[in-house]
Amino acid sequence: MSAVLEPTGQTDGVPPYCAWCGGARADGDHAACERRLATVDPPRHCPVCARRMVVQVDPVGWTARCSRHGESAGANGFG
């Protein structure tokens, strides 16, 4: 497993796409998506390109892989 990737193309440190719904961050409020990501769900979309990622969840965490931007991982409550 690798560390969480730092997305390129960020504006003010914020990736251009929502990691939960895949929508453009500039197009709406993603507070509900952020709550889901912080509590129970791993990311489903790449925050750099919005492609669906291959996600694997196990009892201690998750890994998510974008075909273009590599792998990220999380643990302890998926936060």
Score class of each variant (00 low, 15 high):
Ala3Trp: 05
Ala3Thr: 12
Ala3Glu: 15
Val4Glu: 10
Val4Cys: 10
Val4Pro: 04
Val4Asp: 05
Leu5Gln: 14
Leu5Lys: 10
Pro7Ile: 06
Pro7Ala: 09
Thr8Gly: 11
Thr8His: 12
Gly9Phe: 11
Gln10Phe: 03
Thr11Tyr: 03
Gly13Lys: 05
Gly13Asn: 08
Val14Pro: 00
Pro15Trp: 10
Pro16Asp: 03
Pro16Leu: 11
Pro16Thr: 13
Cys18Asn: 05
Cys18Val: 07
Cys18Ile: 08
Trp20His: 15
Cys21Leu: 11
Cys21Trp: 14
Gly22Leu: 07
Gly23Ala: 15
Ala24Lys: 11
Arg25Val: 14
Ala26Leu: 08
Ala26Lys: 12
Ala26Pro: 00
Asp27Trp: 04
Asp27Gly: 13
Gly28Phe: 07
Gly28Tyr: 11
Asp29His: 09
Asp29Met: 02
Asp29Ile: 02
Asp29Arg: 13
His30Gln: 06
His30Glu: 04
His30Asn: 04
Ala31Asp: 14
Ala31Phe: 08
Ala32Gly: 13
Ala32Lys: 14
Glu34Phe: 03
Glu34Lys: 02
Arg35Cys: 03
Leu37Ile: 00
Ala38Ser: 07
Ala38His: 06
Thr39Leu: 05
Val40Glu: 10
Val40Thr: 13
Asp41Trp: 12
Pro42Leu: 11
Pro42Cys: 10
Pro43Cys: 05
Arg44Asp: 00
Arg44Asn: 00
Arg44Val: 00
His45Trp: 01
Cys46Ser: 04
Cys46Pro: 11
Cys46Ala: 10
Pro47Cys: 07
Ala50Pro: 01
Ala50Thr: 07
Arg51Phe: 08
Met53Val: 10
Met53Asn: 09
Met53His: 12
Val54Lys: 13
Val55Lys: 09
Val55Ala: 09
Gln56Leu: 14
Val57His: 02
Asp58Glu: 15
Gly61Pro: 07
Trp62Gly: 03
Trp62Asp: 00
Trp62Glu: 01
Thr63Phe: 02
Thr63Tyr: 01
Ala64Tyr: 01
Arg65Trp: 05
Arg65Gln: 15
Arg65Phe: 04
Cys66Trp: 04
Cys66Leu: 09
Ser67Leu: 13
Arg68Asn: 08
Arg68Gln: 11
His69Ser: 01
His69Asn: 13
His69Ala: 05
His69Lys: 09
Gly70Trp: 00
Glu71Thr: 15
Ser72Val: 15
Ser72Asn: 05
Ser72Arg: 14
Ala73Met: 05
Ala73Cys: 10
Gly74Lys: 02
Gly74Asp: 00
Ala75Cys: 03
Asn76Val: 12
Asn76Tyr: 11
Asn76Gln: 10
Gly77Gln: 02
Gly77Arg: 03
Gly77Met: 03
Gly77Thr: 04
Gly77Lys: 03
Gly77Cys: 02
Phe78Cys: 02
Phe78Arg: 08
Phe78Ser: 02
Phe78Ile: 01
Gly79Gln: 12
Gly79Glu: 13
Gly79His: 12
Gly79Trp: 11
